[in-house]
Structure formats: C-alpha cells, structure tokens
Design a protein around this nucleic acid. Structure first.
Length: 372
DNA sequence: TCTGGGGTCCTTTGACCC
DNA sequence: TCTGGGGTCAAAGGACCC
C-alpha cells in the first residue's frame, strides 16, 4: 500500500536477448552457443547477440560483417519477425494478466503499474516464473517509484536480474555511471555533456539547471536535471495511438539511375498502403526519405487534402517529391512514410478514430497469475 | 569495415491569420 | 497604417529508442 497518494510502484520487464532466446526455444541445441541474429547482405546489422557472443564484443546495431570478424564461430541466423511477433503476443498476454496498467514497448519490453497491488514484488516474481514456464524465456525486472528507475534497474543485472530500488538508491548506485546509462540521453547528448565536463550522472546532478538550459534549451535542460535525479514523472500509458507508418530500404549497392529509384519507391508505397488498408488506417501527409552515399539524409513531405491509403495516390505523391528533389549523389536508402493519421480516416468501415488497433491475443488469458 | 528498419518526439523556421 | 504578439500548421532536421 503506497505511503503517499502520489507514490507509485512501477516495474519494467525486459526479455533477455529476445530474438536469440526465441530461436533457442525452437532449436535447443543452440543453447549456450554464440548466436547472432542479423540480416543478410553486405549492409546488414546485428539485431541481437546471445550473451556468449557478447563476450566477444558483438552487440546490437553492429555491422554483421564486423560481428563475423569478432566471433567467426558464432551461429548467424536471419531474423524471423513473424515468429517473434507471435511469441510477443503470448508474452504480453501473460504480462497483462499480472496487473491492469501495462505499457508495451516494442516486442519484448513492458512497464507495469503495480501501485494497486498489495505484494508487487511477489507478483513480479510470479510473472517471471510463469513467463519462463509458458514461453521458455528469461526476463530481467526492475522495480522503482517511476519508469526511469524501473528501466535502469532492469538493465543493471541482466540477464535474469531482479532489482528493486528507491529513487535515492538509484542516485547512489549509478552516481559514477556515465550519463548515457539514462534512457533519453544518447551519444550526441553525452558528447555535449562531456564538453561541459560532465562525465557521470553525479556530475550531471550537480550541474546548475541554468547552465543546462543555456546549453540544451530551457526545456531539455530541465529534463536533464530531472533525469539526473531519477525523478521522471511519466505515466504508464496503456495504449498510445499510432502516428505514422513507413517502408524504407537500404540498397545493397547505391543506386543512381532515376528509373530504378522510382521503381523501388513506387513498390514501397504500394506495399505500405497494402498494410495500411489492412489496418484500416490512412493519412494525409506523405513523405519520402533519401539517404545519400555520404549518409546525409533528406526528407520531403507533402500533405494532401484527404486521408488516403491508396497505393497509387501515395506512389504518385512520393514520386513527385523524388522528382522535385533530384538526388545529386548516389542513393543508399529510400523510404516512404504516411503520417497524419487522424480523426477522419477515409479507410475501412469500422471505427474511425485509431487508438492502436487491438490485436486480439491468440493466447488464452485463462491461465492467470493467481490473484492473491 | 562504416553505420537496418520500424517508430516517436522535439525544435526550428516560415507562412498565414487574427 | 504600422508594428508586434500569439496561435496553428506544415516542413525539415535531428536525437533517441527497440
């Protein structure tokens, strides 16, 4: 029972090496091996590496070619997203049975608001056990007074971690850690902080908010100051509306021929609209993204009068944008996006407003987590 | 040896309107 | 009439996350 009305108990649950673990479930002989899930092709990157592979320095977002050099004996697997989605649905059904407020983040992570539970730690222990039993997956859990503490705590001792921290404990435990440990502080911000002499979370906490405001803007400065003290106040938001959808592709070799580029773009537009109309979504803003051989990236957008999910319309607009832009260098990546999903979707018969199309859980929720 | 694909959100700038 | 302030929208870029 919360001491103060405002006190919350938030958990963050994160599956350990999700894609690799799913692969190991269907091929148990992989257990204990260095396994890397990565795309194929010369420009593929690693999506997940098993902990054995990580020991060789292999990590997410690393070029697959580099991973191969670091760990030639690793078993490389192509990702099977359909399977991961299916397992994710089972997983989230179990998570949702544990408490009412759940915020799903990607396929393998969720925040749970446990404030109303009498024994939140026990509930999470049970949830972890049930997930292991039903899916074969191991998870790491962090519990704290807000999402920020919960997230950092779940990361702290993975795999199979279970870390409970108060805000003050988090401040002490991570005082000497670099600012990038905090979600929301990425490499760019970390570099700029270093230029200010800020190397640790403690340094950041001791930096005057005025100085941070000067350097990063008032808003961001205030945000950084709060983060440094682990007093993030974000809600566990049940389900957020989808805002945009896109298709993009990095070519194996850079493309210069306008006709080839146009063909690729039109195909992506039609493919995107296929899935859009299946979901009953449509949008007014069509944009393209062009990444050149020097990795510079340009976007161009145009808003049309009526929401659409018509492949020919979107392809037309996209091709128009591409022709107006006329890339001056070879193109590495091309993409198309539809945004501005809104109130009056012209799409399918059903509900117009689009708060996250609910995918009916295939897995029974009958097997629940003991009430208590 | 360069750097995927799916997203979200924020900031800045300029146009336009009141 | 001039100037300025605000609000909103669209576009573009960028940081970040899984």
């Amino acid at each position: 029972v919360p001491a103060n009305p405002g006190d919350r108990t938030i958990a963050h649950l994160d599956v350990d090496a999700f894609y690799v673990s799913v692969e190991c479930c269907r091929r148990p002989e992989l257990l204990g091996e260095a396994v890397v899930v990565a795309g194929s092709g010369p420009r593929a990157v690693v999506t997940t590496a098993s902990y054995e592979a990580r020991r060789y320095g292999v990590g997410s977002a690393m070029p697959a070619a580099k991973a191969r050099r670091l760990c030639p004996q690793a078993i490389f697997l192509a990702p099977d997203f359909a399977l991961y989605q299916q397992v994710s649905r089972q997983l989230m059904a179990l998570v949702r049975a544990a408490t009412t407020r759940v915020e799903v983040v990607g396929l393998d992570e969720a925040y749970l608001d446990l404030t109303e539970l009498s024994f939140p730690h026990a509930a999470m222990r049970r949830l972890v056990a049930v997930i292991a039993e039903r899916t074969g997956l191991t998870c790491s859990v962090g519990i704290g007074p807000n999402k920020q503490v919960a997230k950092v705590a779940s990361d702290a001792e993975k795999p199979a971690g279970f870390v409970v921290l108060t805000r003050a404990q988090a401040c002490v435990r991570f005082a000497q850690a670099p600012p990038e440990l905090i979600p929301g502080i990425g490499p760019k911000t970390a570099t700029r902080l270093r230029e200010l002499g800020v190397r640790t979370i403690e340094d950041l906490a001791q930096t005057p908010v005025e100085l941070l405001g000067e350097r990063f803007g008032t808003n961001a400065g205030r945000g950084l100051a709060r983060m440094a003290r682990f007093d993030h106040d974000g809600e566990v938001s049940d389900e957020r509306a989808v805002v945009s959808a896109s298709r993009e592709r990095t070519f194996d070799h850079d493309l210069s021929d306008p006709a080839e580029l146009e063909r690729a773009l039109a195909n992506m537009a039609r493919e995107l609209c296929g899935s859009l109309s299946k979901q009953g979504r449509s949008g007014r803003t069509v944009s393209i993204k062009v990444r050149l051989d020097d990795f510079s990236t340009v976007t161009r957008a145009r808003t049309v009068s009526r929401p659409t999910s018509d492949g020919e319309v979107v392809a037309d607009v996209a091709l128009g944008l591409l022709r107006d832009y006329r890339p001056s260098r070879p193109v590495r990546l091309l993409g198309v996006r539809v945004a501005g999903f809104g109130a009056d979707a012209a799409g399918s018969a059903g509900a117009a407003a689009t708060p996250e199309r609910s995918v009916p859980a295939t897995i029974a929720t009958d097997q629940l987590l003991l009430p208590l």
